[in-house]
């Protein structure tokens, strides 16, 4: 029982971070109906930049975070302006291939600048564990979880109540109608890439706090694509739910299934298997929008 609760709670905590990262996919998809396959690399870059600012340049932590934020905003703007802007009328798979190419370039860049060796990430939050009876939870997991959840909540408030958020939702439904009302679709794309880039960088920082700085972060970032697909690609709430579900599933698979010798490593693919099964039953994902239609 203790085992089970320990795995469950750890799964929820990690899942919160998955959710936070996954939301970045949702934002890009809502605006442009495209997947950003370079997203994992953007997550990784966020981690590397913040690590460099803190560990190499010895900047104070808040300053380092600010540097990372500025970098993320710039990255979002540059990628949108130089690459995606030219593709606004291109077919969706062209855009997806473009982001795949970008992923390769960014990964190569990280290798050239930082090399392949993993680094330990400085502790942003106090280390230690919180003990609930026999269950031990690392403090940094707990703090990361709450930061992630707070961020997702803020973001959904942004989409629900602000003018910019509302215009992004409108444009995601019907670009031409949005333009007819004076919404600039260019601005919407720009806004969505900058937002996604910020989300990615924050996700990179949180992930690095849990697992250190290494090239594997890109894979972990991209892994959250299966989270958004599970949750319903255009739903923030769905991403939240699916992230936590995925975290729990991964931890459970690692905890129980990997005890069986021949199932070693199943923890990594178990979430994908789960996604597959859910999609068979609910093709729109858990909370994805169906086309509203009167009957």
């Amino acid at each position: 029982m203790t085992d089970f609760l320990q795995l469950l709670l750890m799964g929820i905590l990690v899942g919160g971070v998955y959710s936070q990262i996954a939301v970045g996919f949702v934002v890009i998809f809502k605006a442009g109906k495209t997947f950003n396959l370079a997203y994992g690399e953007m997550v990784m870059l966020g981690a590397y930049i913040s690590w460099t600012a803190m560990d190499q340049w010895d900047l104070a932590k808040p300053v380092a975070l600010l540097v990372t934020l500025v970098f993320a905003i710039t990255l979002g703007l540059v990628v949108e302006r130089l690459l995606l802007r030219r593709m606004t009328s291109a077919p969706i798979h062209t855009m997806i291939m473009l982001t795949l190419g970008l992923a390769g370039v960014l990964r190569g860049l990280v290798l050239v600048v930082w090399g392949p060796d993993p680094h330990a990430y400085p502790d942003i939050v106090p280390t230690g564990t919180v003990n609930l009876g026999d269950i031990m939870l690392p403090t940094n997991f707990i703090v990361s979880f709450f930061i992630a959840i707070a961020f997702v909540a803020l973001l959904s408030l942004f989409f629900q109540y602000t003018k910019a958020g509302l215009s992004m939702r409108a444009a995601s439904e019907d670009k031409v109608a949005a333009q007819s009302l004076g919404i600039s679709v260019k601005r919407i794309y720009q806004l969505s890439w900058v937002t996604a880039s910020i989300i990615a960088a924050l996700g990179g920082i949180l992930l690095a706090g849990i697992s250190g700085v290494n090239l594997g972060l890109a894979f972990m970032g991209l892994m959250t694509l299966s989270v958004v697909i599970l949750g319903g690609i255009d739903s923030i709430l769905g991403a939240l739910l699916a992230g936590i579900l995925m975290g729990v599933a991964t931890k459970m698979a690692e905890g129980y299934l990997e005890r069986i010798e021949s199932l070693k490593g199943i923890g990594e693919i178990f979430p994908m298997m789960l996604t597959l099964v859910v999609l068979l039953i609910r093709p729109h994902g858990l909370l994805g929008q169906k086309t509203v239609e009167r009957v």
Binding site: L166, S167, D174, V176, S180
Partner: peptide, 26 residues
């Protein structure tokens, strides 16, 4: 100048009030 497009181009997932509010975007 505002164009009300042919075929009722509504934002179907938004509420009626949000649809109206978005009209005042500029």
């Amino acid at each position: 100048i505002i164009q009300v497009m042919e075929g009722r181009r509504i934002f179907q997932h938004l509420t009626v009030e949000d649809n109206l509010k978005i009209g005042a975007y500029v």
